[in-house]
Nucleic acid binder design. Sequence first.
DNA 1: TGCCCAGGCTTGTCTAGGCAAGTACAGTGT
DNA 2: ACACTGTACTTGCCTAGACAAGCCTGGGCA
Lengths: 245, 245
Amino acid sequence: MTRRTTPGSRLPRAAAPYARIKQHLKNELSRGRWPPGEAMPSDAELVAQFRVSRMTVTRALNELRAEGLIERVQGVGTFAAHLARVASQLRIRDLHEEILARGHRHRARVHLARAEAASEGVARSLGLTVGAQVFHTLIVHFEDDVALQCEDRHVNPASAPDYLGCDFTRITPTQYLLQVAPLWEARYSIEAALPSAREARLLGIGRGDPCLVVQRRTVGNGRPITTARLVHPGARYLLQGEFKP
Amino acid sequence: MTRRTTPGSRLPRAAAPYARIKQHLKNELSRGRWPPGEAMPSDAELVAQFRVSRMTVTRALNELRAEGLIERVQGVGTFAAHLARVASQLRIRDLHEEILARGHRHRARVHLARAEAASEGVARSLGLTVGAQVFHTLIVHFEDDVALQCEDRHVNPASAPDYLGCDFTRITPTQYLLQVAPLWEARYSIEAALPSAREARLLGIGRGDPCLVVQRRTVGNGRPITTARLVHPGARYLLQGEFKP
DNA sequence: TGCCCAGGCTTGTCTAGGCAAGTACAGTGT
DNA sequence: ACACTGTACTTGCCTAGACAAGCCTGGGCA
C-alpha cells in the first residue's frame, strides 16, 4: 500500500495517523467509555478500524501508556488505566528562571561560602564520614529586592571540586551543579514550618510567619552531590503545577 | 536480516536492542559527554553503530525525548537537553492510598455535606453564575486518629449530580469524582499559611501552627469539576517526591 | 474428577525499505 | 551585493510482514 497524500490542498496539514488514533482514544476515554480497568480494542481491531499498519497502532498505544492513560499486558490486552495513580505530577521550576519569566530581576546575596567539617547529619546524607570536608553555602535570593528564598546548601567536594570558586551572584548553585554533574536522581520533601531565627532575619520576616520548606537531595552516578534546604516565606511564595494528560 | 536469538542459554534475558541503545545513551549523557545543547549522533550513525534498523533507533530516541533527556529537530539533528527544564517532577499521592501504604488506618469525619448557593469566588472558579447551586463538603481525614487533612471542597453539580448521596466515610471525594468524571486536567498550588480559626479547631492545632495548603482545581471535558482546599498541619505532614530519568 | 497440553488469542519487538518535510550550505545567476 | 536554486543531510512517519513470548481456554487423557 502506498502513502495517501493530500495533493494540492492548502489545508493546514493532515494530522499523522498515529496522532489521530491517539486523539480518538483520548476522546473516548475522557467521555467515560471504557471505565478504569475495562478492556479496550486490541491492536488488530484498531488496525482494521483505521486501516493502518500495526506499527502505527503500536506507536499510538505505547505513547498513551507512557502518559499513564492506558495499561497493556502481554498476552491479555489493553485496558483503561486507573487514573488515580497518575493524577498528580507537579513540576518545580528553577527559581532563577521563574523570576526571569515573570519579567523581574533576580539577585542573590552570599552570606556564607566555605569548606567545613561534615556534621553527622550532613555526612550521612552525602555519604561522607563525619568530619570530612564539605562545602557549605548560604545564599538569599531576591526578586526585585524582595527576599524569596533562603538556600542552605551542602555539596560533596568529590562531585564538584571547584564549587567554591563560583560567583553565585551570577549563576545559581543549581545551574552550576547541573553543568558540572548532570543531575541524575533527586528526592524532594515539602513541608510547612517556622523559620529558624537566622532564616527569619535573613528573609526579613517574623519568627511566627509560616514558611514553605523544600528539602532536596540529588544523587548522580551513584554518588551524592548535594543537599539543600530551601526556605520560602509563605506569604510571598507559591509552588504551582499542573497535570494534563 | 533475521532476528538474533539467544538459543538454549539460561541467561535472564537479552535486553531488547532499543532498550540497549537507550541505556547506552543515558549512560553517556550522565557521564557528561554531550553537554546540554550539544549535537548527538544522528539516526544514521546509530544505525551503523548498533547494526539495527532505523525504526529501532527511532524508538529509543523518541522515548528519550519523551523523558525530556534529548531534543530532536527535524532537518537539523539530535541534541542533549537542557536538564534544568526537567529537573523537578513531584508526584502527589492520594491521601487514602498513602495512609494505607504506611499500614495505618484511614478514617474520615464529615462535618458538612450540602448544597449551597455559589459565592462569587466559588462561582468564578467553577464556571457557574453567582447564586447557582453548588455542592459543598468539609471533611477531616485521620490517620490512626491523628487529624492529617482538612478538605474543604466545592463540586459542580453538572459534573457529579449524585455527589451528596455518597458515604464519604467509605470513599474519598477524590476517588468518587475520578469514577464519575474522569479527571482530565488539574492545576495545583502549594503554599505555607496559617489555618483559619475553624480549620485549627477541626485539626486540633493552634492558630499559629504553620500549615501546608494545597489548592487544586480540576477540569474535565472542558467543564470545571471541583475545587478543593486541603489544609495539612505542618508538623504532621510532608509531601514527598522524587525525580529519576 | 482432575491434570496436561495444544491452539488461538494477545502484546512486544524487529526488519528493510520507502516517501515527506525541514534545514543548511554551496554554487549560480542577476 | 544579493537573491535564488539545487543538493545533501537531517528527522518524521509509514508499511507489510515476521517471530517471540505471555495468557487463556477447551479438548483429550489418566
